[in-house]
């Protein structure tokens, strides 16, 4: 007959074994996303992408080398035009898409420019103060401003034809930092692909995701705890986000930069607006950004320049 001590030890071992099995089963359940290659052609080169905008039926990418690429959501075909009409010293940053495929970029800190589908700059708007980023929120542009004080909204929204009437976007709000460069890093906001006027935005160095439509009532802020996994780059944990439907949130977590130094998205998590982890997949090759998303699928641009689709079970 076994001694009580031996029995206790056996029970403990059994419980541990069952616990490990349960964890494995849960992990398998969580990692049930599947990945497949959508297009083997390289749709974009290795130049830095400075802007991404999602319009009806297509996603647009703008690169540092001034290539404007349209990727069709239906055919997955890509077409590229050269950005034309820039003035001396202008260096575009960001891309936003309003209705009827109206594209806008920041050509300087104090100037917006409208771009045609063929890459021609056709209109300019002078801004009232320096802006650091541009995104779209339904029919409105979202502009990122330099932080003024602590706890102040960093984004404002409005129509390009009336920059004087831009209104503050409730969150994210400005953070305290000691030096000017730290202040910039701590207050750099990125926004992902929105839906029905709701936009996901986050401070580049934080794991908190804000989803809102510009009103306080419809703004939620959640800490994405699943980003605290090993391998996620703490300097910029959220790499990209896309909303789909009324509840789905696809989150691309950044991987630590490799020897080549460029940050990429290493893990894609299918989540909800309550920040629940409903499954993830570690991407190999990693992804540069999300192109578009639906409830059950998310299409990404891989680091090798191809289209990759992640499917939920």
């Amino acid at each position: 007959m076994p001694s009580p001590v031996h029995l206790t030890h056996m029970r403990c071992t059994s419980f541990r074994f069952i616990g490990v099995l349960a964890c494995c089963a849960l992990a398998q359940e969580a990692a049930a996303l599947q990945v497949r290659l959508l297009s083997s052609a390289e749709i974009i080169g290795q130049q830095v992408i400075v802007g991404r905008a999602h319009c009806v039926g297509a996603t647009w990418l703008l690169t540092e080398r001034l290539d404007l690429t349209r990727v069709s959501a239906d055919s997955h075909a890509a077409s590229t035009s050269r950005l034309r009409g820039l003035r001396e010293g202008e260096k575009p940053w960001g891309l936003a898409c309003l209705s009827q495929n109206q594209l806008w970029t920041l050509v300087a800190h104090d100037a917006l420019a409208q771009i045609t589908a063929g890459g021609e700059i056709v209109a300019r708007v002078r801004l009232d103060r320096p802006r650091l980023g541009i995104y779209s929120a339904g029919e409105r542009l979202l502009l990122l401003q330099t932080p003024a004080g602590i706890g102040r909204p960093l984004l404002s929204a409005g129509l390009p034809g009336n920059v004087g009437a831009f209104t503050e976007w409730p969150a994210p709000i400005s953070q305290y930092a000691r030096s000017p460069d730290q202040q910039l890093r701590a207050n750099l906001v990125s926004c992902g692909i929105g839906v029905s006027g709701y936009v996901p935005c986050w401070l580049a160095n934080q794991t908190r995701l804000v989803i809102g439509d510009g009103t306080h009532v419809h703004t939620t802020e959640r800490d994405l705890r699943f980003l605290r996994a090993t391998g996620v780059d703490e300097a910029a944990p959220i790499w990209d986000v896309a909303l789909a439907g009324s509840s789905r949130v696809w989150v691309l977590a950044s991987a630590r930069p490799g020897p080549e130094g460029r940050r990429v998205g290493g893990r894609l998590t299918r989540s909800t607006r309550l920040a629940e982890d409903e499954g993830f997949i570690d991407l190999s090759p990693p992804a540069r950004l999300i192109l578009w998303a639906a409830d059950e699928r998310c299409v990404l641009l891989s680091a090798t320049g191809q289209l990759v689709e992640v499917l939920a079970p």
Binding site: I49, L132, G133, P180, D181, L184, A235, A236
Partner: peptide, 16 residues
Amino acid sequence: CELAMADCIRRALIGR
């Protein structure tokens, strides 16, 4: 100079 630094930092941190 500060605006140029802002541009440099955003490219370094969130340039894709």
